[in-house]
Design a protein around this nucleic acid. Structure first.
Lengths: 314, 314
DNA sequence: TATCCTTACGGAATTCGTAAGCATG
DNA sequence: CATGCTTACGAATTCCGTAAGGATA
C-alpha cells in the first residue's frame, strides 16, 4: 500500500471514475493510474470499483466501505505534513480568514489588529463572502478560518464554535417618531424597513419575529452590509435594522440607535474550521484572540471529534 | 512519504530509539531504518529525533508533535485493511473476546450461544483475565472485545460502553439467621464474609458501602469467582456477597440468595473496544447480541470519538 | 468511431543490503 | 572496545511512461 495508490483511488472517486482525467490531475500517465488502482485492489483483496467491461462506473459495496478510510488516511497524511510545517516555519506563514461583511467590518478588526502585533511574521489574508461561500472556501482550503453568524454548523466537514452573541438595533434619523415611545414590533412595522439580504447576518431572526407576530413589515431595501443600510436610513428611506456591533454612536452621529434585543432572537457568531484538520499554531492563537474562551486545545479537540456524538446514557 | 518510513519512526519511538532493534523488528537492515527516518525528516523538513552524536536519544519538540500523526496514520492504514478484510472474508473469520470470570461464566454464555448460531463461520476465542489484563489484551490486539465491570474506561485508547447494570446478592445456606429479618449492613457485618478479590466484580462498591457505614466486616475468604465463593458458603465458612447474575435458584439449590441491591452501589458492566479502531462486522453483531442497545453504528461512532469531548456551552 | 481501460515492454529511478567508517559510553 | 548510527557503493527490484490491444457507447 502506498500513497500514490490511495491518491489514485480518491481522485477516481472525485472525478467520476474517469481514469484519464485522474491521470491528468495527478500529472502522470493513465496506465499508471490504472495500475495503481489495480495494485491496491489486489493487495486489499477486494474490488473497489465496479467495472462495466473496461470502464469504471461506480463503487462496489467493498469500495463504499474502504474509500472513507482512504480519504481519512490522506487527510491525516496532510495533517502530518502540516504539523511538521508548523515547526519548520515557526511563527511565519500565512493565515487566511473568510468572513461575512459584518464580521470583517465590525467584529474582526480588533482581533486582526492585536494578532498582527503579536505575529508580525504572519501574512494575513481576508476573504469576504456569504456563509455558503465561506464554507466553500474552508472546504477547498482557500481559507483556514471562517467567521459567520450561522449556517456554518450544517456542514459535517466543518466544526463551528460559538464565539459571542449579539442582538439587533433599530437605527433611525434624529427626531424620528420611534424614539418617542418604547419600541415594539407593531410600531416598527408601521415604518418602511431597511435591513440585510436574506441569509445574512441574522436576517432570518428578523423575519421570524415579524412572522410570528403576524406582522408584515414593508422592506423597502435590502443590503449586503450595514454601511449601505445606514446610508439609506440617513437619506430618510426608512428605518434600519442591523447588528448592534455595526452601530457606533460617534461615528454614526447623525443617526440614533434603539436597542431591539427584546424584539428579535439572539444571534450567535461562530468561527468554523475544517473537521479533522490541523492548523498552524498561530491560527489557533488568532481564534483565541478573537474569542478568548476558545483556547487552542479546545478547538483542536472539537476538530478531532466526529460529526455526531451521541453516547448512550444507559 | 511512505509507510515504511512511518513504520520506522513509530517503531523507533516504541523501542526506545534503538534503530538496530527496530531493524530486527521490521525484518530489514539497520542502515535501511536509518535511511527511512532520515528521508522522512528531510521530506518534512524537521528533525524528529534528538541525536547525541550518532545516537538517537529522544524526540525533538517537532517530533513530539509529529509522532502522534504518524501513529494515527498507521492506525488508519490498519483500519483500511481491516475494512477490506471484512468484505473479503465475508462472515468468516475469528473473534476474540476477553472477559472477567463473572462475565465469561454468567453474562456472556447466552450471547455466545446466540452468536454461534447466527455466525457459525466465525471462530470464537475467549480469554479470561483481570480488568487490567483485559485492557492489555485489547491494546495489543490479542482481544477484539473486552467485557468487564469497570476500570476499562480509564484507558484513553479504549472506549467503554455501558451494557447493563447489576446488583449484589447475599448468599447463605438454608436456615441461616440472616433470612429471618430484613437485610441491613449492620446484620451482615456480624457474619464472616466471603466475596471477590479487590479490584474484581464490584468489590470496590462492597468495601465502600461498609466503610461509609463505619463497619468493618470480617472477610474470611476472597475469591476470583462466584463459584468458589458459593462453594465455601456451602461449607459454612461464612456468608457470600456476589453478583446477582451469578446465582441461580435451581442450580445453587442448597443456598439461598437475599437481594442486597439496597446495600451496595449499583454496578455497571461495559464492553470495551479499541478507540479509533475498526472491527469486523460480526464483532459489532456480537456486541449487539450481548447488549441490544449498542447497535453497530453507535459503537463505531463511539470508537471514532476522541478521548475527551468537551464542547463550549458559551 | 471516439472514448476509455488494460496489457506489454523497455529504460530509468529507486530501493536495499553489505561493508566500511566513526562516535559514544 | 563494544555498541550503534552514518556513509558508500553496487546489485536487484520496482516504477513509470510509451505503444499497442480490445471493449463500450
Amino acid at each position: 500500500m502506498n500513497f500514490q495508490q490511495l491518491r489514485s483511488v480518491r481522485e477516481a472517486v472525485r472525478r467520476g471514475f474517469n481514469l484519464t482525467e485522474v491521470a491528468l490531475a495527478l500529472h502522470t500517465s493513465q496506465p499508471g493510474i490504472s495500475r495503481q488502482i489495480r495494485e491496491l485492489e489486489d493487495e486489499l483483496g477486494v474490488e473497489i470499483f465496479i467495472r462495466a467491461g473496461k470502464r469504471l462506473t461506480g463503487l462496489t459495496p467493498a469500495g463504499t466501505q474502504v474509500v472513507p478510510w482512504v480519504e481519512r488516511l490522506l487527510l491525516d497524511a496532510d495533517n502530518l505534513q502540516h504539523a511538521a510545517e508548523d515547526f519548520r516555519l515557526g511563527d511565519s506563514g500565512s493565515l487566511s480568514i473568510a468572513a461575512t461583511h459584518s464580521q470583517a467590518r465590525y467584529a474582526l478588526p480588533q482581533a486582526v489588529h492585536e494578532f498582527r502585533q503579536q505575529h508580525p511574521e504572519v501574512q494575513l489574508q481576508m476573504h469576504q463572502g456569504s456563509p455558503k461561500q465561506i464554507a466553500q472556501m474552508l472546504m477547498t482550503g482557500v481559507a483556514d478560518i471562517g467567521v459567520a453568524s450561522h449556517s456554518l454548523a450544517d456542514n459535517p466537514d466543518l466544526v463551528a464554535l460559538p464565539c459571542y452573541r449579539w442582538t439587533h438595533v433599530v437605527v433611525v434619523p434624529a427626531g424620528h417618531p420611534l424614539l418617542d415611545a418604547p419600541l415594539t414590533l407593531q410600531r416598527l412595522a408601521e415604518h418602511p424597513v431597511i435591513t440585510y439580504e436574506p441569509g445574512l447576518t441574522g436576517r432570518s431572526s428578523i423575519d421570524e419575529a415579524f412572522h410570528s407576530a403576524g406582522l408584515k413589515p414593508q422592506v423597502v431595501l435590502t443590503a449586503m452590509d450595514a454601511d449601505v443600510i445606514k446610508t439609506y436610513v440617513e437619506l430618510g428611506l426608512g428605518v434600519g435594522i442591523l447588528a448592534a456591533i455595526a452601530f457606533d454612536e460617534q461615528r454614526d452621529a447623525p443617526l440614533q440607535a434603539i436597542d431591539a434585543r427584546h424584539l428579535f432572537q439572539i444571534n450567535t457568531t461562530s468561527v468554523a474550521v475544517r473537521r479533522g484538520g490541523q492548523l498552524r499554531r498561530y491560527a489557533y492563537a488568532f481564534i483565541q484572540t478573537f474569542a478568548p474562551h476558545l483556547d487552542p486545545a479546545l478547538v483542536q479537540q472539537a476538530q478531532a471529534a466526529p460529526a455526531e456524538v451521541a453516547l448512550p446514557s444507559l
